[in-house]
């Protein structure tokens, strides 16, 4: 009952990709000459990066190199941090999300985020999923019911919770909670999905489930994932960006390429050292 609707949400770029097989897909998001500051401290330096549409891009690098900071600039979550400042441009479909006339709320609806620790609201499973659609003004009970089923199926959680939709989301296990958060996010049908170490609080079984899920979601979404786990980056991502901390403690991007390239034939010595486990 839901497969038809899912076909409709496929972005047009998917069909284009099959035509031009080897060329990199068009970038969904583009970071151009971006510098990020906490007050006077520069946390990110001269970041240039593109996130190809309907691909999974992993951001890897040692602790403290600014991976999460970079991720949070992509949906303007850093706006909440006092004295945080962004220089340069971040383009979503060619539009600068930091342009003065850009509406933060609509940016965040187009760019969804899954956090490091599962953070379901202290509400029922059902209410968690419809939180976003309700914000969009959807009130029709039938439509909401359909969204709940579709989203929970989409996050591979439906079969486990379909009989207890009105129980608290906090009663679920950690892995289920994280999939609930993914369902909650895809319920608003964003175009880009940001994941900030989504498996770091989960056990291996739950981790595999989330990774499988990411491969499914890739068809409909542009996914950007920050991870400490290099095996995870190698397993799930199509592209990988390698970040490092400069001596002045600002994070910089040192290499971006197809994941296979990064892991088998890195261009930068530091990337090679990192992915082979020699440091980091």
């Amino acid at each position: 009952m839901m497969s038809h609707e899912q076909v409709q949400v496929l972005p047009p770029a998917l069909s284009m990709r099959s035509v031009q097989k080897d060329a990199a897909p068009s970038p969904k998001m583009l970071v151009r000459n971006m510098n990020f500051y906490y007050g006077s401290f520069r946390a990110l330096a001269d970041i240039n990066l593109e996130f190809p549409e309907n691909q999974i891009t992993a951001i890897i690098g040692p602790s403290g190199c600014g991976k999460s900071t970079l991720l949070r600039t992509l949906d303007r979550m850093n706006d909440l941090v006092p004295h945080a400042r962004v220089e340069g441009e971040i383009l979503l479909d060619g539009e600068n999300i930091y342009a003065p006339n850009m509406d933060v709320v609509s940016v965040r609806r187009r760019v969804g985020m899954v956090f490091q620790r599962p953070n379901p609201f202290p509400k029922s499973i059902y209410d968690n999923v419809i939180y976003g659609p309700r914000l969009l003004g959807i009130r029709d009970k039938k439509v909401l019911d359909e969204i709940v089923e579709k989203s929970l199926r989409g996050s591979a959680l439906w079969d486990e919770v379909k009989d207890k939709l009105h129980e608290s989301g906090l009663a679920l296990s950690g892995g289920q909670q994280q999939r609930l958060c993914i369902a909650r996010m895809i319920a608003v049908e964003p175009e880009v999905v940001l994941m900030d170490e989504p498996c770091s609080a989960l056990d291996p079984v739950a981790t595999i489930k989330i990774e499988d899920l990411m491969r499914d979601l890739r068809n409909n979404y542009t996914i950007i994932i920050v991870t400490h786990n290099m095996q995870q980056a190698a397993r799930v991502s199509d592209y990988t960006a390698m970040m490092m901390m400069r001596p002045d403690r600002a994070g910089e991007m040192i290499e971006f390429n197809k994941t296979r390239q990064i892991f088998t034939n890195p261009q930068d010595k530091r990337t090679e050292d990192y992915v082979t486990g020699r440091f980091g």
Binding site: L80, V105, S106, F115, N119, P120, F121, M185, V188
Partner: peptide, 13 residues
């Protein structure tokens, strides 16, 4: 927890 607030804001609330 701040993560709850972030979760809501990230959904465009």
């Amino acid at each position: 927890p701040k993560t709850l607030r972030d979760g809501s804001l990230a959904l465009g609330a």
